[in-house]
C-alpha cells in the first residue's frame, strides 16, 4: 500500500491510507495514514451500516486535511465489538461464516471489564478531588490517589486496546482460515 501511495503523492495528488497494521505502514512509510482498530476487510465498519461507514470515511477525509507532518499515522477512536459481526435483517439468510460462541463471550466480558474499570477510575478521581479539598489535608494522599487513578486509566487502555485487539485478531485469523478451507474465498 505505502509503496503505491508514495508514488501517487509524488505525482502531486494528496493521499491518505487506512491501516489496520500500523507497524507495517510505519515501516514501509506512507505520507498520511489513519489507523483503525478494526479487522482487515472491515475498515469502514460493518456490512449494511451506512451511517457508521459514512462517519468513518468522513473522519479519515478530515484527518487528511489536518495532518501536517509527512509520515504521520493518526489513530481513530473506534473499537470493534462484534465477534463475529452480528446479522443485519437485510442480510438474514446469508452465510455468516464460522461462529465461535466462546469468543463472543470473551468480547462481552471485556466490555464489562472496561466499564467496571472506568467506574473505578471515576471513583478514584472523585477521591482525588475530595483529598484536595480536605481540611486538614493528609500529606501525599492527593498525589498518591492521582497516581493510582492514572494506573486505572492505563488498565482501561490495555483492556480496551491491546486485549480487545488480540481477541479481534485471533477471531479474525481463525475465521479467515476456516473460510478459506471451505472454499468460501475465490
Amino acid at each position: 500500500m505505502g509503496l503505491v501511495q508514495n508514488q501517487i503523492e509524488g505525482a502531486g495528488v494528496s493521499t491518505i491510507s487506512m491501516t489496520v497494521q500500523p507497524h507495517i505502514t510505519g515501516s514501509v512509510g506512507a505520507p498520511r495514514a489513519a489507523y483503525i482498530r478494526y479487522p482487515a476487510g472491515n475498515q469502514l465498519g460493518e456490512a449494511g451500516k451506512p451511517q457508521q461507514q459514512r462517519a468513518i470515511v468522513t473522519a479519515v477525509l478530515e484527518a487528511a486535511s489536518q495532518i501536517e507532518r509527512p509520515g504521520s499515522i493518526i489513530e481513530l477512536p473506534y473499537r470493534w465489538r462484534r465477534f463475529p459481526v452480528q446479522e443485519e435483517p437485510r442480510f438474514l439468510g446469508e452465510s455468516m461464516g464460522p461462529r465461535h460462541p466462546q469468543v463472543e463471550a470473551i468480547g462481552e466480558s471485556l466490555d464489562q471489564l472496561v466499564n467496571l474499570a472506568k467506574d473505578y477510575q471515576s471513583y478514584l478521581e472523585k477521591r482525588v478531588a475530595d483529598a484536595a479539598a480536605a481540611e486538614p489535608s493528609i500529606a501525599g494522599l492527593e498525589r498518591t490517589l492521582a497516581t493510582q487513578a492514572q494506573r486505572v486509566e492505563h488498565l482501561v487502555d490495555v483492556l480496551d486496546g491491546e486485549a480487545l485487539d488480540q481477541l479481534r485478531e485471533i477471531a479474525n485469523a481463525i475465521a479467515t482460515l476456516e473460510l478459506r478451507a471451505t472454499g468460501k474465498f475465490v
Binding site: 479487522p39 482487515a40 476487510g41 472491515n42 475498515q43 469502514l44 465498519g45 460493518e46 456490512a47 449494511g48 451500516k49 451506512p50 461507514q53 459514512r54 470515511v57 468522513t58 477525509l61 459481526v85 442480510f91 446469508e94 452465510s95 455468516m96 461464516g97 479474525n172 475465521a175 479467515t176 473460510l179 478459506r180 468460501k184 474465498f185 475465490v186
Partner: peptide
C-alpha cells in the same frame, strides 16, 4: 472481491465496509 488473505465475508455482502464508493457518492 477476489483475495484469499483476509476475511471478506462482510465485503462480499456490502463492499462499502472495505471499498466505500457509495459513501463517497453520498458525501
Amino acid at each position: 472481491v477476489t483475495h484469499t488473505h483476509y476475511n471478506h465475508v462482510d465485503a462480499d455482502r456490502d463492499v462499502n465496509c472495505m471499498f466505500p464508493l457509495d459513501r463517497l457518492r453520498e458525501l
